[in-house]
Amino acid sequence: MTEETTVTEETQDVAHPMDDLLRMDRMPHIWCPTCGLGTVVTALALALGKSGIPLDDIAVVSGIGCTGRVAGYIKVDSFHTTHGRAIPFATGLHLANPKLKVIVVSGDGDLIAIGGNHFIHAARRNVDITVICVNNFIYAMTGGQVAPTTPLTANASTMPYGNFEPPFNIPHLADSCGAAYVARWSSLHVRRMTTAFAEAIATPGFSLVEVVTPCSTLYARRNRLGTGLDLLKFYHDNCEIQHGADTRSLNIDFQGKITLGKFIERPRPTFLDRLDNWYGQVFGDKYEPYVGDRK
């Protein structure tokens, strides 16, 4: 991880367009060949660059796992926290300094299994954070164990005869808990993913983008699906874009059709909007708005 990257001479004279957004001194990153996470990082960096928000005002928080390492590669204030706790950590950052735009990037296991409780409550409260849930259908960092998103019948090291537990439908979960923005893309749909990140960041309140991403080393290998490239081809052939789809219809079956799109966009008062409005009503002029005094 600390080894120096040798960069070929002919490319050193031209700066990489994302030099200012990524910690290039940490490249190469730890992710496997044909993993989709690097693409997600690019899309996020592009969305941040285009958002118009000063990079100094952005914070990225990750939990643990392959996706947990995202925070370490994005050159903003970035926090690599404990397993499952990225959302409450981000909630603390945001509440203590509402000027910060806080983005959580973590995996399906981190956010939906061990961090599931925080996910639903942050959506319920409508805390103004953006959550990017990278879904590779498996616990990859630890070697391919079953996740709460593993499709039925898919093989995992702790479901050696195939998964018999029904998985979560993440957009439906976020929708039912009140998220202000819900979308799902695959890491192949890189421009739409970038747009979705930008929209999610611009939406006040709890916004969620699920990104279906290839894991070649564990998910694809265990299930004999080829490489990450084969999975991208699979997404190309089997993803269907259906904006506004009923989130109840978004289950993902093993090697079945994957519905992508922007499903929910409904801004509603955030936690801090409500806090200031309510205390304003209760205390009248005596109340000094919390967010008001920071803007």
């Binding site: 909630t91 603390g92 945001h94 806090l275 919390y290």
Partner: peptide, 28 residues
């Protein structure tokens, strides 16, 4: 709310509470 300039939040559990104050402290 009377002192101003601060927030109290009742989190969903103690795991979240501890994580949130780490974030709060990093936000200054």
């Amino acid at each position: 709310p009377k002192v101003g300039g601060g927030v109290f939040i009742q989190m969903e559990d103690e795991l979240a509470s501890m994580a949130a104050i780490l974030g709060g402290a990093w936000a200054g």
